Amino acid sequence: MTAPSSPAFLEHALHAVELQLQELSAALLAADPLALQTCSERMRQVSVDFIAALEGLQVATVTQGLEQRIQQIHSTLSVQRDSLARLAALAERQAAVLLPPPVHPTPTYGVALGVQASTASAARIYSAAG
């Protein structure tokens, strides 16, 4: 096994990040929440391993090729982050269509029991304190 501060360890850690990034991209395109969660957890772990590999190295050890690969990972992760934000917004819109928010907030039990609750007053537990 190579030492955590060796260039070979860095290369191995970078390769693991690249492979996991491909799996994460595929899971994102498949829109499978369980696969996406699993891939995200693995991505987090290989990222931590990669950072650990970088911490022990001198700056001069990082070659131009490694730097370009790291920049490619950075840009891919940025695109995926934006895609996840769009996917979350789409999911919120779809949920709003299925479960529209109430126009006027009503008490959960008051209307069903025939009790007319006033919207201006707070519950007794809160109004007694102040």
Score class of each variant (00 low, 15 high):
12 H>Y: 03
96 A>G: 10
118 S>Q: 08
109 Y>R: 05
1 M>F: 05
102 P>D: 09
119 T>Y: 12
1 M>H: 08
23 E>T: 11
15 H>D: 15
129 A>E: 13
20 Q>C: 14
79 V>E: 10
18 E>Y: 00
44 R>I: 06
50 F>Q: 09
7 P>E: 08
116 Q>P: 03
63 T>L: 02
112 A>M: 10
50 F>I: 08
5 S>L: 04
110 G>D: 07
4 P>D: 04
54 L>C: 15
8 A>C: 04
27 A>P: 13
34 L>A: 15
14 L>K: 01
48 V>Q: 13
31 A>D: 14
2 T>I: 10
102 P>Y: 10
117 A>W: 07
53 A>M: 13
22 Q>A: 15
115 V>C: 01
1 M>P: 06
59 V>Y: 03
85 A>E: 12
103 V>N: 04
110 G>H: 04
42 R>P: 03
63 T>H: 00
79 V>P: 02
27 A>N: 04
99 L>G: 02
120 A>L: 08
115 V>E: 06
73 I>E: 06
100 P>V: 09
84 L>P: 10
122 A>H: 03
95 A>N: 09
1 M>R: 02
8 A>R: 02
93 R>N: 10
73 I>T: 06
107 P>T: 07
30 A>Y: 05
26 A>V: 15
68 Q>W: 04
105 P>K: 10
66 L>G: 01
41 E>M: 00
5 S>F: 03
59 V>H: 07
